[in-house]
């Protein structure tokens, strides 16, 4: 296996008019690993993927994908990548098999090679039964699997998955995860964007948290969790309103009626509880927990009433 990075981005910037979508994104994705770009809607995830996959030119910065400069030979980059975007990119009137064969032909496989490849991928992505039906009759999960199968026609070394499971039911999501993991096992480098923390936690080797157009933290799931403290004290209040007022006093991250505070030393537990008590609030539940990616995310992106 070749060593080094399959995807490297340095200082990516992109604006639409006055609106800066990316303010300097740096990413390095090692070969054969899965990298998750985690962030809320509008953070710049899709824009980043569109630049990395040659669909969009950056205003500044540089990108290499598998050694090819994206600003240079786009066609060479395109031969190295697969892309599954947010909208399913298949033809509704054609059958699953016809879609795969058409796409294979557009990747310039010969007719017989396209047929053989379609058969192989239909089996691999569990679409054999549905292969002769028009795609408009498919369920959401089947469409995504077909979409993923299309991305894998040339077995590209680098695969971009832009929110591959958004809108899927839990069962289909699990199917999709299994399929994605399998690609990773086959040696594909995968960059995935997601709004789901669990997805990043489950699948990715490394995670970059992106917010307001730049990466605010990067590391393994464990590293990121460590960033927000070893443990967290979670206080649940009777109402969200009460929680907001409590958060004003003790700081921490607000999630609905729960306030979550990082605990760096045991004495802090007592101090926090005393502060709450003195202010006249009584939490309905108190819990000491390992940090979740949720905490990481909300602490780093500053959503909700983070003060600490």
């Amino acid at each position: 296996m070749v060593t080094g990075y399959a995807i490297e981005a340095r200082g990516l910037r992109k604006s639409y008019g006055d609106h800066e979508v990316l303010t300097g994104v740096d990413l390095s994705v090692a070969r054969g690993t899965m990298f998750a770009l985690l962030g809320p809607n509008g953070a710049g995830k899709t824009t980043t993927v569109r630049i990395l996959s040659t669909l969009l030119d950056a205003d500044g910065g540089s990108v290499t994908v598998n050694g090819h400069d994206v600003a240079g030979n786009k066609r060479a980059v395109r031969a190295q990548i697969g892309l599954t975007g947010q909208d399913t990119a298949v033809d509704e009137l054609l059958t699953g098999r016809e879609n795969l064969e058409m796409m294979a032909r557009l990747f310039h496989l010969s007719k017989s090679a396209a047929k053989a490849r379609a058969t192989e991928l239909l089996e691999r992505f569990d679409l054999v039964e549905a292969s002769t039906r028009p795609v408009k009759t498919y369920s959401g999960g089947m469409r995504r699997r077909l979409d993923l199968a299309v991305s894998m026609i040339t077995a590209p070394p680098v695969l971009f998955l832009d929110e591959p499971t958004t809108g899927l039911d839990p069962r289909s999501r699990a199917d999709m995860w299994a399929a994605i993991r399998e690609l990773l096992d086959g040696g594909t480098t995968i960059l995935l964007t997601t709004q789901y923390l669990e997805e990043a936690d489950q699948l990715a080797d490394r995670i970059a948290v992106i917010d307001k157009g730049h990466v605010v933290a990067e590391g393994t799931a464990a590293e990121l969790k460590r960033k927000v403290g070893t443990e967290r004290l979670k206080l649940t209040f009777g109402s969200a309103d009460e929680a907001v007022r409590a958060a004003d006093i003790i700081g921490g991250v607000l999630l609905g009626a729960t306030v979550s505070v990082a605990i760096d030393e045991q004495a802090r537990v007592r101090r926090v509880l005393n502060l709450v008590h003195d202010a006249g609030f009584e939490p309905s539940a108190v819990e000491l927990a390992e940090p979740t990616l949720d905490d990481v995310f909300h602490t780093l992106t500053g959503t909700a009433g983070a003060k600490s």
């Binding site: 996959s53 669909l55 395109r78 990119a89 298949v90 990747f107 310039h108």
Partner: peptide, 13 residues
């Protein structure tokens, strides 16, 4: 407006 052309654009075609 759908995803199909977006995919085509990411392909060497």
């Amino acid at each position: 407006t759908g995803g199909l052309v977006e995919r085509f654009r990411s392909m060497p075609m």
